[in-house]
Amino acid sequence: MKPDRPVGIIGYGGYVPRYRIDAAEVNRVWKAGHMPAGRSFKAVPGCDEDTATIAIQAARNAMKMARIDPALLRAVWFGTESKPYAVKPTSTIVADAIGALPRANAADWEFACKPGTEAMQAATAMVGSGMAPYAMCGGADTAQARPGDILEYNTGAGGAAFILGPAAEAIAALDASTSYVTNTPDFFRREGQPYPSHGQRFTGKPAYFHHIQNAVAELLQETGTTPADYQWAVFHQPNDQFPLKVAAELGFAKEKVAPFVLSGRIGNTYSGAALLGLARALDQAAPGDRILLASYGSGAGSDAFSFTVTSAIENIRGRGVPIEYYLNRSRPIDYAVYARYRGKLRMG
């Protein structure tokens, strides 16, 4: 898919809370240290943080980089599966905070871990059709997992925002994008339930792998490219293994992928995951680099994008906040403080 008018990324920003809990600490509480997983951390939101505050900071960082008038944003679209309000958009809060209202569309998007890239497809269309000079899309989450469940080891918190605009102003131009979507209930949460349910191993081959493989295959075909044409590849990252495995299966060399697998340091940031990976890639990309982005959302689907970095990327260095800053910023907490911050303690 390509819009009529060329579109690209004007600016981007991310945010990850500073608290970290070691998977070994989760294991200590639930399995008494039996067969601990390898060392990995996940980011935990502080008691004054939630998806809205994460999205606001990511959006502010994107605006700092892009330096556009917020009144020119015609959409501020965030996706999440941990909405502060079940009914009432988070996106309006973000749009209000950055001064983009009242002339912006600001609904929330939901597609498990990929609503941010779904919003990116729509933002592309918004700009590419000429309806909007600029549009913002993003994903943020403070995902919850049932205490003791395997997901609790790496449900993290974080988010990223991207501003799309004319390719002539972009730091990375969009070459093309695809989407591959089926009706697959691999992971979901019923209304009123505090924690999601998932099909364990069913979330692997029939879900994550099938959809990413198909979306990327279609993208490569549409653009007439092969994995060798891409300097960097960013995949959705529920854990450290899946993105490396799907990359290998698709033929992307490990060194093109590994630097942007952040889940070992911040956990799975769900709607923020693929986008934070892309932000990290752009932080170190050079003009001419081609970047693949492939998200995955349970339910299920994958959005795949091909971007080519422009020379304008040299102009924005130092304007935003590098993702590495947030990755390095780390305050370890124990399970008790984690349970308090995540609202898992019954207060009344």
């Binding site: 004054d48 943080e49 939630d50 809205a52 505050t53 606001i56 900071q57 809060i93």
Partner: peptide, 20 residues
Amino acid sequence: MCTRRIAAQGDAGPIVYAYK
């Protein structure tokens, strides 16, 4: 300045986001 969750009016009321 950053924007954080300051208070919520119970479990059903509006959430107050404000500066810290």
